[in-house]
Amino acid sequence: MIEILLFAQLQEEAGKDKIQLDIKQITVQEIKQKLQSQFKLSQIEESMVAVNEAYALDDDLVQMGDTVAIIPPVSGG
């Protein structure tokens, strides 16, 4: 199982803060595509992704047992 943690606007759009994928391995880009098609997340492509608390690139592999955090861009003033 791969656990995906969503934050801020992504969490609101998906209606949940955690998603679990029953997949052995998948790339970061494939996770983004899967979430975009399932939940229509507006800022998924601009979001930072961390795998096991280390920032990850789109072609990085995510393995069963990993935790993925997806953090959308934040603006403030």
Rank of each mutant, 00 (worst) to 15 (best):
Q43C: 02
E13I: 02
G76R: 04
K16T: 15
I23W: 02
D60I: 00
D17Q: 12
E46D: 13
A8S: 15
D58L: 13
Q20N: 13
E46T: 09
G65M: 02
L10I: 08
T27Y: 11
I4Q: 09
A14Q: 05
T27H: 12
Q38I: 09
V28T: 09
D60H: 12
K16M: 13
A14V: 05
V28S: 09
I31K: 13
E45N: 15
P73S: 03
E46N: 14
L6V: 06
V28N: 11
Y55V: 13
F39W: 09
Y55R: 08
L61W: 13
L21I: 13
F39E: 00
L6T: 03
G15V: 06
I23A: 04
I44H: 09
Q20T: 15
V49G: 09
Q29C: 00
I31N: 10
G76M: 04
A50C: 11
V51M: 08
M1D: 11
K16P: 00
D22E: 15
G77N: 06
G76N: 03
F39I: 01
F7R: 06
Q36K: 15
E45H: 12
N52K: 03
A50D: 05
L57C: 05
Q36A: 10
V62K: 01
Q38H: 09
E30C: 02
A69P: 06
K16F: 00
I44K: 10
M1R: 08
Q25L: 10
G15I: 03
L6H: 08
G76H: 03
M48D: 06
Q20V: 14
A14F: 11
N52H: 05
E13N: 08
Q20D: 05
L61T: 14
I2D: 07
K34E: 07
K40V: 04
A14Y: 05
G15F: 03
D22Y: 09
L6W: 11
Q33D: 14
V49N: 05
V74T: 09
S47I: 00
V51F: 05
K32Y: 11
G76C: 07
S37I: 00
L35T: 05
E53I: 01
D58T: 02
Q25N: 15
L41T: 02
S37Y: 02
K32F: 06
